[in-house]
Amino acid sequence: MGWYCDYAIGDALHGPYHDTEYGFPEEDEARLFERLTMEIMQAGLNWGLVLRKRASLNAAFDGFDVDRVASYGDDDVARLMADEGIVRNRLKVHAVIHNARVLQGIRESHGGFASWIAAHHPLTKLEWIKLFKKTFKFTGGEITGEFLMSIGYLPGTHRDDCPVQVQLMEQGTPWMTIGRDFYEA
């Protein structure tokens, strides 16, 4: 396993994400939706590319306001496909819009995305993948795993001696309540 810390710490692009977001629990709906979308957009590409396009993605998808994205129609898809600032992949764009609509339903059933995730904890990585594939579009194993690592529901790729990992260990994250062995079984 490669450690994100090995190249992220001190890097102008990866450093801020590594130091303040990666592995930290998140409950804000728009931020969770953004993170899931970023992982979807990253599929087959370099994470650095997605980080460079993050501001453009936020602008293009209305700050990841779930209701606004869920209301997108054909004109919005055309606008997004013409936007050079984002990853212009029709399947990914349609998945993001579909997933916003799913999140509206999750609000009805669980009160929100964060509550839905918490209600399913703990699951093994394989169980999470099955759940995400059944619920969302464009959420295979890598996307689901990276998303859940990024919000602390699966063990991430911080080294144990990484200052951020030390901080996460002190404050605790959802996966730590069960332990790494549960997820690696």
Rank of each mutant, 00 (worst) to 15 (best):
Y4M: 09
C5W: 08
C5I: 14
D6K: 10
D6V: 12
D6H: 08
I9A: 14
G10D: 14
G10C: 13
D11G: 11
A12R: 15
A12H: 14
H14R: 09
H14M: 08
H14P: 07
P16H: 12
Y17F: 15
Y17M: 10
H18W: 13
D19M: 07
T20C: 15
E21K: 14
G23P: 08
F24Q: 07
F24E: 06
A30I: 00
L32F: 02
F33H: 05
L36N: 02
L36A: 01
T37E: 04
E39H: 01
I40T: 13
M41N: 10
M41P: 00
Q42N: 13
L45H: 06
L49E: 10
L49T: 14
V50I: 15
L51M: 12
L51E: 11
R52M: 13
A55Q: 12
S56R: 12
A60D: 04
A60C: 03
D62N: 07
G63R: 02
G63T: 00
F64T: 00
D65M: 03
V66A: 02
V66L: 02
D67A: 08
D67V: 00
V69D: 05
V69L: 02
S71L: 00
G73T: 07
G73W: 04
V77D: 04
V77N: 01
V77K: 04
V77I: 11
L80C: 02
L80V: 01
M81F: 04
M81Y: 06
M81S: 06
A82E: 11
E84A: 15
I86K: 06
N89D: 13
R90D: 14
R90H: 10
L91R: 12
A95E: 11
A95W: 07
H98Q: 05
H98A: 09
N99W: 03
N99K: 03
R101S: 05
L103N: 14
G105K: 06
R107G: 15
E108F: 03
E108C: 08
E108Q: 14
S109I: 01
G112E: 15
F113D: 13
F113W: 14
S115R: 10
I117R: 09
A119C: 13
A119T: 06
H120F: 08
L123D: 07
K125H: 06
E127T: 11
E127P: 11
E127N: 09
W128R: 06
I129Y: 02
K133L: 15
T135G: 05
F136L: 05
F136R: 00
K137Y: 03
F138E: 12
F138S: 11
G140W: 01
G140A: 05
E142N: 04
E142K: 03
E142L: 04
T144Q: 01
G145P: 02
G145Q: 03
E146C: 12
M149P: 02
S150R: 03
I151V: 05
G152I: 02
G152H: 01
L154A: 02
L154E: 03
G156A: 13
R159E: 15
R159L: 15
D160M: 04
D161F: 02
C162F: 07
C162K: 01
V164S: 08
L168R: 11
M169C: 11
M169S: 13
Q171N: 06
G172P: 00
W175R: 06
W175E: 08
T177K: 15
I178S: 05
I178T: 07
G179S: 12
F182H: 08
F182A: 11
F182G: 07
F182E: 12
Y183N: 12
E184N: 09
E184H: 10
